[in-house]
Nucleic acid binder design. Structure first.
Lengths: 116, 116
DNA sequence: CAACTAGTCAACCATCAAGTTATATTTAGA
DNA sequence: TCTAAATATAACTTGATGGTTGACTAGTTG
């Protein structure tokens, strides 16, 4: 085990905490996750995302702005149509890690329930 | 490269999106990140966390409840004192991934600014 | 130019969530 | 038992946010 020596945890200044939290918060919204998921298969126009998610157009547009300004998606304009795409596929690694954490939590609860 | 064949992305049902978003949302709050960070060095009582973060006692307690019910921290009661600890150190991997994404985003912007 | 289409923006409302204050609960100790 | 300490909970206030509606912008087409 390497637990004898405490790892030097990087200091979390309030400013850093704020920035990191902001990014987490953007992912903490089902609709935005749905948009990212829809974009996982490739570039999509706003209209396509509207039909894919069943949400209102203005709503989709607003969420896309948030994702855009946080750097999660990129934008391309073609005529009157706007196409969005994933900026960094690593987002999905994040999601999978969260899923793993959820499943781990469930396993822990399961163990707790089946204990003697 | 394995990009020729599209990976079969797991389906994101609304229910799954809601659960995943809920977890992200818990991390999307500076105070809760500060609490997790304070716990990174080891188990702490509520009082210790109050002085460590400078927040109100009731506030800290409430955030701890959230972290607890989402399975991010575990709890131990000793007399009248409650000790909290990190349930799964993988949370910090998540945070570091987010930091990486932030830095990557900044690099991208930097490149965009220094382009011809 | 008029009509249409795709998307963004602004205003509004309802809901939610963070923080505070006060109160309840539980345990230790005089 | 009475008190004090540590924590949890309830009630409340206030600011943030998701969703909708409607106006506005900019291309496209007749």
């Amino acid at each position: 085990m390497a637990s004898a020596r405490q790892p030097a945890h990087p200091i979390l200044t309030p400013e850093r905490a704020r920035i990191i939290a902001e990014r987490f918060r953007v992912l903490g919204e089902p609709m935005r996750l749905a948009l990212l998921h829809a974009l996982q298969a490739g570039e999509r126009s706003v209209g396509e995302l509207v039909t894919a998610t069943g949400a209102g157009q203005a709503n989709v547009s607003k969420h896309l702005q948030l994702l855009y300004h946080q750097g999660f998606v990129e934008r391309r304009k073609e005529g009157v149509t706007a196409f969005y795409r994933i900026a960094d596929p690593h987002v999905f690694d994040l999601c999978e890690m969260v899923c793993g954490g959820i499943q781990e939590g469930l396993r822990t609860k399961q163990r707790a329930m089946t204990e003697v």
